[in-house]
């Protein structure tokens, strides 16, 4: 399982994350940052958000706070940018959550309709992250 690269993270962060009804932005972004090696295991949920907002694409996340539920568009924008996953022409030109959500549907990170403002569940976040890791490993 590609998510095994995340096992070094604080178990308490993950334990707290997976019981939530909707995935919080701080933990979701922290998982991406740690999976791509931008933050280490000791980083906190707040560090995840701070890291994301410092990125060039971070301003597209717009007024997001650590405890907010993360949407399909926001999460996949962060995921695709961090993993350098290429997308369509308009995603490349504008790089907004809306185009990231559509790209997530096309690339089958999301099964069914990829609603841009869908509040993702922890399972959905882990599934997309796992798929990105798997595909990245396959390309290597």
């Amino acid at each position: 399982m590609a998510l095994s690269s995340l096992t070094a993270q604080s178990n308490s962060v993950l334990d707290d994350f997976i019981v939530r009804d909707t995935a919080d932005a701080g933990t979701s972004l922290l998982l991406i940052a740690q999976a791509t090696g931008h933050l280490d295991d000791s980083a906190t949920v707040e560090d995840g958000l701070t890291w994301a907002l410092q990125q060039k694409w971070g301003k597209k996340l717009k007024n997001i706070s650590s405890s907010d539920s993360i949407t399909t568009g926001q999460f996949h924008l962060a995921l695709f940018q961090s993993f350098s996953i290429r997308g369509g022409i308009f995603y490349t030109l504008f790089g907004t959550p809306r185009y990231a959500a559509q790209e997530a549907g096309y690339q089958e990170y999301v099964i069914g309709t990829a609603y841009v403002n869908h509040k993702m569940t922890p399972d959905e976040v882990l599934s997309s992250l796992s798929l990105a890791l798997e595909r990245t490993e396959e390309e290597l």
Binding site: G88, E103, Y106
Partner: peptide
């Protein structure tokens, strides 16, 4: 004979 291209998700 048909050539079908889909180089990107939106084209």
């Amino acid at each position: 004979m048909a050539f079908k291209f889909r180089p990107a998700s939106d084209f």
